[in-house]
Design a protein around this nucleic acid. Structure first.
Lengths: 145, 145, 145, 145
DNA sequence: GTGGTCTAGACCACG
DNA sequence: GTGGTCTAGACCACA
């Protein structure tokens, strides 16, 4: 379910947080369902339990999960999570759009990119998945040159 | 010309690199014009000269400037620089668009954001600046929750 | 009678202890009346009997109940219980008041909060409940930021 | 400046966070002043640097400080911090007041406690300290019995 | 078994 | 020297 990318500059715990947020906001993980335990996920990803612990702490802090001592970590039931998540993404997108605009990229260029991304999906969606679901790479890094 | 933001998570040298790249690609710094010396810029920004040196090295590596031993650093005359820069931005944008799509954001939502960013500017552009100019914060940070 | 809050950071057994203490000190549970058995309460709350056992042990230790082997757990008849409970609350309140004072909060601010809490209740009390009754969450958690 | 209480149930990092928040919101630590480095404070308190790191992370997350890699941690300049901090305390106080009210404690009892705390200070203030400053124990624990 | 905290020691990026 | 991440291993409280 979660694939770590050691070439990614972002820390491991952050990669986990992002994937989990996407999975939760995307509805793949249902409210009140139990997440893998800290130790078991650590074994599964072959990383240190402390790193999982940190990821889970972040997720709890940001309201995606709640943890009960002695029982485990559970997906928080919050109707507005998906909406919040989407707003966050849109705000981030707008910041990037401003940069594009400032560098002289035209609105047409942008729309063209949007279409490229969305039309590709439109094709595969009907034959493939019910809705955006699997690829969950938030904030992916971009090579500098 | 360059304003450092210590609240920004990105390292100082990277802020400088991004700013310079924007200034060069945007045409504010003209081809073959001389950049401030490492030492003077370090004084001006009151930071460590090593940091400036690193930024200049990065800029040289990515082809935005060239350095002449004993004379200084100069803006590279490259017709395709602007284009390369824009392509880089568009590729980054598309990655984020994919994430948006995967989280269930509709094409309409995206277009709406695009319009928000571009319409606002259309107004000010005619009265203000000929083209993308100063506000050039790439990769700007976004609050997590 | 008892509602567990799994979002609450406090351990389950402590939530039970606090609730019981409030019910007993508030007179809802009368002296010498029998508490639900460990097993039945565990079933009712669908939690581990060990947890109930621990809560009851704590209650016995702090003098709120007494247990008779083979017969069950009973509310202790102690005239001073209510008073002790109130003193405990007042001492806790004073500790927090000291913190408030140290952070520059004025006596007027405090009084204003006191009035907010007590006036609201004055209205509802006559039409509602004879005295402090159920909502009895000690140490309730407060969002950090 | 910071005294750890190993008898306190609260984790060490949280004790540090609370003290620091009090010191910052109380104006003892001035905006943009540098905090002790992670390592040096660890030595001073004779605890592990990781623990300090965690405390500082929490402080940054909650907006009290900002950190610059390679330079250190600095007090954030935020006019509203003190206000926010006081509001947080007042909200926590009100929760506790509700509990008091529910346990039958009268408004008079409360006021009496408030006066006890504030009058005592009024005496010592004129002869002692200019304003609430030194004692900085937020959320202090209260014995159960 | 679960989560949570802490230590000891290491490595990296930044300035 | 600074902060930040990660590992390994330990201990505790809770259910």
């Amino acid at each position: 379910m979660i694939i770590l990318d050691y070439n990614d500059k972002r820390p491991i715990y952050e990669q986990i947080v992002d994937k989990m947020q996407a999975l939760i906001a995307g509805g793949v993980l249902e409210p009140d369902s139990k997440l893998p335990s800290v130790r078991s996920l650590a074994v599964e990803l072959s990383i240190n339990p402390n790193t999982i612990q940190r990821a889970y702490s972040e997720l709890e802090r940001s309201g995606f999960i709640y943890s009960v001592k002695g029982r485990g970590n559970f997906v928080r039931a919050d109707e507005h999570l998906k909406e919040k998540q989407q707003n966050k993404l849109l705000r981030a997108l707008e910041k990037q759009l401003i940069t594009c605009r400032e560098q002289g990229i035209t609105r047409e260029n942008i729309i063209s990119s949007v279409d490229k991304v969305y039309e590709k999906r439109e094709d595969s969606r009907s034959a493939d998945a019910p809705q955006g679901s699997d690829g969950t790479d938030l904030h992916e890094e971009v090579q500098d040159d």
